[in-house]
């Protein structure tokens, strides 16, 4: 019964937070990409940026209405159409305009896969309305992944491009590791209890790293945060993450990542 979990206050609060986090990141990613429609280094890049921005904003469009149907007091309002809001539930990397095309590539290569990792764990959610949207969004995202990988490879072909991309990776990837939250996060436990999401914090983080790290290494980039693959454990290892600098509610660094 889809409605039963709504009586679980902890699960309801957690799903509201998850939806607004996913929607805000989609919204800002779309906004930032749209600003590069006229600044991409090629006509093809500009057209692709327009298509990607349109889809990211479209994904936000179908996620925000879910907030309105959930019986949660003080739920955040959608950011669309210039609606202002004090709290922004998006990673620090996307809330301000990007200063270069390399930032756009880094955003696509490192933020989009994190969001997709979460959607992959929502396709069987007991919240059917969210599960249906997750499956449809993932269908559209395959093109984004292919495009991002191509641009990463393209940038890494020159030492200048590789250096600029490395700077973005150094600043952004540690924040994305934080984004999946500390292991055994209470809200996540509530979501799992109600069958609203599959996996858990560290499972998501490892899945994300499996997706993004091999490409970065393949094109000659270094992994920050002392990230390395432990063959014995078949898992990625990393240094202690700076949880004290991370806002758990808005799921972002309190200070903007230095890039």
């Amino acid at each position: 019964m889809e409605r039963d979990w709504m009586e679980d206050d902890a699960a309801l609060a957690a799903i509201v937070n998850l939806i607004v986090v996913l929607a805000d990141n989609k919204y800002y990613l779309g906004r930032r990409l749209s600003e590069w429609v006229v600044g991409a280094p090629s006509l093809e890049g500009a057209v692709a940026a327009a298509a990607l921005a349109q889809e990211e904003l479209g994904h936000a469009r179908v996620l925000y209405p879910l907030l309105e149907e959930l019986p949660f007091p003080g739920r955040p309002s959608p950011l669309e159409r210039g609606n202002g809001r004090h709290r922004r539930y998006a990673v620090s990397f996307v809330v301000e305009p990007w200063s270069s095309w390399v930032h756009a590539v880094a955003g696509l290569a490192l933020i989009d896969p994190a969001i997709n990792t979460m959607f992959e764990h929502l396709t069987d959610s007991t919240y059917v309305a969210l599960a249906r949207r997750a499956a449809r969004i993932l269908q559209e995202e395959s093109f984004h992944s292919e495009y991002a990988e191509g641009r990463v490879r393209e940038l890494a072909e020159t030492s200048e491009g590789r250096c600029a991309l490395q700077s973005c990776v150094d600043g952004l990837l540690p924040e994305m590791l934080l984004w999946f939250g500390p292991q055994h996060e209470p809200g996540v436990e509530a979501l799992r209890r109600e069958g609203l999401i599959a996996g858990e914090n560290e499972v998501w983080r490892q899945r994300y790293l499996n997706r993004v790290a091999p490409l970065l290494l393949e094109v000659g980039l270094r992994l920050p945060a002392h990230l390395s693959w432990n063959r014995t454990r078949s898992a990625w290892e990393y240094e202690a993450l700076p949880w004290e600098d991370w806002d758990q509610l808005e799921r972002r660094l309190r200070r903007k990542a230095k890039l």
């Binding site: 298509a51 349109q54 889809e55 990211e56 479209g58 469009r61 449809r136 969004i137 559209e140």
Partner: peptide, 8 residues
Amino acid sequence: TSLGCPCT
């Protein structure tokens, strides 16, 4: 056709 369709 797309969730980002501007004509919805």
